[in-house]
Design a protein around this nucleic acid. Structure first.
Lengths: 208, 208
DNA sequence: GTCTATAAATGGATAGAC
DNA sequence: GTCTATCCATTTATAGAC
């Protein structure tokens, strides 16, 4: 790993905690045992470093879209337990990935004053996951596994639960790793009830 | 309104957008046509100004707790339409109040690096609203208006929907007032389905 | 690719006049 | 209660040596 990538990694880590304006070029280079001037060899200025991180968000969204599309096309059976399993791992594997978590934290800060950061945040946290949830619930509904509740509602309801747990138990915590365990347990309980309800409502409807 | 309060108002406004470290004492005073030294007459330093805003969060939480307790004790009938009405106005009157919204935005930024801000954020955004939701759903359940789904789940599910809309449509937007209209419409639709489901499940259970 | 040195601007904070 | 003037630390950024 070269120093340019190191700088991006350190910058992301610090920006995600203290925000762009709370971190100096000194801070970033100091962490790596380098002088500020070293950074200006790799980046035109501090802002270009930030933009290079924004570009990584685009890349991540792209990668996750592709990963999902591939996995989804492969799926031969869409059973409730299988979907429930996927659901339970959503938080753990997606939002709680250290890298993704830092990107979200950083965007969460910058979006308050930066329209571009706001758009990236929405894409990463809502648009992309929502379209994936929608695909899953639509598929389940086709197979009569779910009552005819609007799949759009189900997707939003489901994602809301995940994001609420993520925001409450993970974001803003120093000791994230410990918190993630509590978060996943809490989410498991919520998802359990979520699926119980849509299954119950689905059964009821199938009986008519 | 004296200048001390003006300074707090301007500071809150700027902190909620650019964060504590992104705003200088010069910025705050400049907005009011004052020199920096004027601020140091009212506050020991920049940090004390921030803490004075944190204190306002405590006051707000206290006030809202009391307001709810009074309103809740007054309530003679807990009907579904009445509760649904309360629900629809929750976002509009609570999270979208300009003052509350700024406090949340500010805490949302600072909580990433400040444990105190994190605690205040959780109190304002989760603990307090959640305890209120819980009281409402428990009351509804006692009157058999809701199926025997854990009221704890209902409260979290319900608050999640509100927060998701708030985060997605209101936070981080320049033109908040316009966005709030769209947010409320979206939330109205979601809450409609939410209540439809718990009523349906409730009826079903009552029939047994 | 990184260092030293340095410039120029900005930010937090104080002393003393009014 | 606010202003002028000032101080000192920090920050972004550049030029030129190695």
């Amino acid at each position: 790993m070269n120093n340019k990538e190191n700088m991006q990694a350190v910058a992301l880590d610090l920006f995600s905690k203290r925000g762009y304006s709370g971190v100096s070029v000194r801070d970033i280079c100091g962490e790596l045992g380098l002088k500020e001037s070293a950074l200006y060899y790799h980046f035109k200025n501090k802002e270009e470093l930030l933009n290079s991180l924004y570009a990584k968000v685009d890349q991540l969204v792209e990668d996750m879209r592709n990963a999902f599309d591939n996995a989804f096309q492969m799926t031969t059976q869409v059973s409730t337990p299988a979907m429930q399993m996927v659901a339970k791992n959503f938080l753990r594997q997606y939002f709680c990935d250290a890298y993704v978590c830092k990107l979200i934290s950083m965007l969460n800060i910058e979006r308050m004053s930066d329209a571009l950061a706001d758009r990236m945040y929405l894409k990463l946290v809502y648009d992309m996951p929502l379209s994936q949830c929608l695909a899953v619930f639509s598929a389940m509904q086709k197979r009569k596994l779910v009552a005819d509740i609007s799949p759009d509602y189900l997707a939003k309801d489901y994602l809301s639960l995940i994001l609420h747990v993520f925001d409450r138990y993970v974001l803003g915590k120093e000791d994230k790793q410990t918190q993630i365990e509590a978060a996943c347990e809490e989410l498991d309980n919520l998802i359990e009830i979520f699926y119980e309800r849509i299954a119950r409502e689905g059964t009821k409807h199938a009986d008519l």
